[in-house]
Amino acid sequence: MKFRDRTVLVTGASRGIGAAIARAFAAEGATVVVNYLRNAEAAEWVAAECRSLGGDGWALQADVTDDGAVRAMADRLSDELGRLDAIVNNAFRPYAFDPEKRALFWDLEWGDYRSQVDGALKGTFTVCRAMLPLLRRRPGGSIVNMATDLVARPTVPYHDYATAKSALVGFSRNLAAELGPLGIRVNCVAPGLVYPTDASRSTREDVKDRIIAQTPLRRIATPEDMAGPVLFLASDWSRFMTGQTLYVDGGLVMG
């Protein structure tokens, strides 16, 4: 088991991609902190699944954009787990992905951008800042930030969302440069459209078909598809990679 005796924090892990990632870590023996915002019941369920999969799961509520809440979470991790080996910044602000109803640029306000930057970037920033002392206690720490393949190929221009995720990629590269000398790696995983998740539940079949048609691997991503690349980047299998973005979209984006 690759993550035996390792502790991993997955933010926004009560559902969707986050939950799939949490389960995958647990199946490799990890102790997984299942962070969530609102859905305690779902988070507890994921934590229970983690335990039954051979790891450990611990559901912890915290709004990742709330500095005080994140610090409190860091203190609890420090006291009760004593170590943190990887962080997966997966939480993001809800966004409706609908190519037919998306906002046009001239319909957007700066507030829309700011809201998404807060969701994607501030949460990651806050978690990284608060968890860094804990992460630094041991060598080989890893941070994995969830971006989107839209940063490289705006198939549909979700301006505010994709811009915020682009900022996240830039943030990650700078953080990688800063933390590299400390032996901590920072990378991004950039999924394409993932189905089913709460965010993609309403995506219409013709949209999916259109994406599938352009995707070399001929299907839409599942939440479980994200787990492999995330675990890879969190493990020492990728010990000489930092500041990278892995596109996990069946080959829609290459390079």
């Binding site: 005796d5 390792r6 502790t7 102790t31 335990r51 790891g55 450990d56 006291d79 009760e80 787990l81 004593g82 170590r83």
Partner: peptide, 13 residues
């Protein structure tokens, strides 16, 4: 307990 936690070994794991 602190020692065990530091080692990442708890009754749950």
């Amino acid at each position: 307990r602190r020692f065990a936690v530091q080692r990442g070994r708890t009754p749950r794991t």
